[in-house]
Structures are given as structure tokens and as C-alpha cells.
Simulated assay, not measured.
Amino acid sequence: MDKTLLKGLVVLEAVTDLQNQPKTIEELATRVGLTRSNAHRTLQTLIHAGYVEKDEDAGGYRGTIRLFELGARQLAQLDVRRIALPLMRALAERTEETVHLSVLDGLDVVYVEKIDSAQPIRAYSMVGGRGPAYAVATGKALLAYQHDGYLDGYAKQLMKHTAATVTSLSALKDELQKVVRVGYAVNNGEWREGVGGVAAAVFNGLDQPIAAVGISGPLERLTTRKMKEFAPDVQACALKISRAMGHRGAGKTSTR
């Protein structure tokens, strides 16, 4: 157990209790059972991380808006799963392929929901699993709508998974611009040999990309022609989820 991390979380909970009033170091130290110096060091770390700020007028410490943003993102992810599930089932019935709902975490996607294909040969994945965002369709659908410079810090982490993986930052950015233009992303065996997919981004009421929905399957069955055929269905599914999340745009608005 990481006692330092645990200490920081306990202090953070004390700072942000339901009373919502700035807390002094003495109050916090007494409440969580730390010395004043330990409480001060922990608060300085939380301030540096952006989760706590000092209220000079009140002479105490309070939580920042970053905590709200963190909680809002988590809540949005939980809501989008519930809303997306029936629409994902319909997409699975229409395409007969595996349907994924993914969220972005750095340079990875995390699969938060999944409907398995009824086909005997299908794409393998699991809820809670990860994939390289730049090499899977749902990941590229999300990366396409991130702010300028998002990928720059990850340039050295782009690695080959198959012969088809795009590892050139400039080539990847060009592809992501195309994703914005056409409204969907494709994966042609870029993470796993012989497995591809097509996906589109899901937006919330603030026009922010919060998830991506897509289908995946063996390229022998999910051919380039089939991907183009199913792309409108995938886009329609993403747009319906977005509408249910409060989005009122066309589902392709980019911040790039």
C-alpha cells in the first residue's frame, strides 16, 4: 500500500467535505491525524497537482474546479455506457460484428462496454482492456478531436504492432484530419494482424469527445468495402448516443 498516496487522498477528502468551507492546516491535521508539517507537505503536493488552492482571504485551503472536472468525466463515462448499450445492441444486430465503446486515456483506449459478435470468428477484447489509440478505430476517432499538440508529447511512444501500424507522427496527424473530414476512423489490421474496424466519436453537450463507438472483426469478413458500407450505421449510432448526451452539433465538430 502506498501510504503517501493514501495520506494525500485522506487530506483531499477532508478539504472537500460537505461543509465546503476553507480549512486551515491545523483543522486538517487534527481531522486526519497528521502533524502540522505532514499536513502542510501534503497540501503543497495537492496544490502543485492542481487539486487544492489556498484561499488567502479566508486563510485556509479549498478544492479546485479540477475536482469537478475529474468527477464530471467519470460521471459522463458511466452515463454514456448506460445510454449507449441499447444502441450498441442494434448496431451489433445490423452489422453482425463485435461492437465496442471506448474512452481515451493518454495514448490508450479503454474498452468500457462491448457487445460480442455472434459470428464464430470474431475480434477478441474485454471490457476494461486497453489498446493503442493510434492503432485502433475507436482510438483514432477520439484522437482526431483532441486539441492541437495532444499527440506531440507521445511521438516517441508510437510503436509498431503490425506492419500496417502508422508510427510517423505527421502521417498519423494527416490521417486524423481525414477522420474529421469523413466523420469516422478505420483500422486495417494496425494493432492485430487480420483484425480491423470502423468507429466514430461520441460527443457530450459541451461538444467534447467523450467516447467512441465502433465495430471490429476479421478483415477477411470486415473488408474495406464492408467498412464503407457499415460506416454510416456506425456514425448514426454515435450520433444517437451523442444526442442522448446533450450534443446538438453534427457529431463531427473538431477542436483541431
Rank of each mutant, 00 (worst) to 15 (best):
Q19R: 13
P22S: 07
T24I: 12
I25D: 07
E26L: 13
E26H: 13
T30F: 01
T30L: 05
R31G: 00
G33K: 07
R36N: 11
A39I: 13
A39E: 02
A39W: 00
L43Y: 05
Q44Y: 07
Q44I: 09
T45K: 07
L46W: 04
I47W: 01
H48M: 13
H48F: 15
A49T: 10
A49H: 13
A49Q: 10
G50S: 12
Y51H: 10
D55P: 04
E56N: 13
D57F: 07
D57A: 13
A58K: 14
G59Y: 12
G59V: 13
G60L: 08
G60N: 02
Y61E: 03
R62G: 05
L67I: 14
E69W: 08
G71I: 00
G71T: 02
A72K: 14
A76S: 13
Q77E: 15
R81I: 15
I83V: 15
A84H: 06
A84P: 05
L85D: 05
P86T: 03
P86Q: 06
R89V: 13
R89M: 12
L91T: 01
A92R: 11
A92E: 08
E93S: 14
L101S: 02
V103T: 12
V103Q: 08
D105M: 11
D108N: 15
D108L: 07
D108K: 15
I115G: 03
D116A: 09
A118D: 07
Q119H: 13
P120C: 04
I121F: 08
A123N: 07
Y124M: 12
Y124C: 08
S125P: 01
S125Y: 03
M126C: 06
V127K: 04
R130K: 15
P132N: 03
P132Q: 03
A135P: 14
A135H: 02
A137T: 00
A137K: 02
T138H: 05
K140I: 01
K140E: 04
K140S: 05
A144D: 09
Y145W: 14
Y145A: 03
Y145I: 07
Q146L: 09
D148P: 10
G149T: 09
G149Q: 10
Y150N: 03
L151Q: 05
D152G: 06
D152K: 11
